[in-house]
Amino acid sequence: MQTDWLYIGLFLVVAVIFAGAPLIIAGLLSPRKPNPIKSSTYECGIETVGETWVQFKAQYYIFALTFLIFDVEIVFLFPWAVAFDQLTLFGVLSGVLFVFILFAELLAAWRKGVLEWV
């Protein structure tokens, strides 16, 4: 119920305090003497060349997209799992069919070569 969620909200605040306060305390305790060399980009002692935010290949994105589609589908299954006792056999089997479509999807992506890292 909502008191449970109130606790989650309070815990969120507490977690942020616990994670943030030591950082601030350490900032007060520690010395602060920046100079240009110290705060330059560290790349193993070699001067950095060009812009940092370089382009990456699109394959990473394909994996993220596949993940998104799987994630959306699996979340549908959680209410189905909670209601398991009240479902008919047909209801359970339609859930299994849903998972099977996911499986076929994975095989299709595999076959297409999406999962190959090049």
């Binding site: 030591p22 305390i25 350490a26 900032g27 305790l29 520690s30 010395p31 602060r32 003497k33 920046p34 240009p36 110290k38 705060s39 330059s40 980009t41 560290y42 940092t52």
Partner: peptide
Amino acid sequence: IFTKEYITPAG
């Protein structure tokens, strides 16, 4: 580690 300096990189 509490008394170590924070080095924020330029940029």
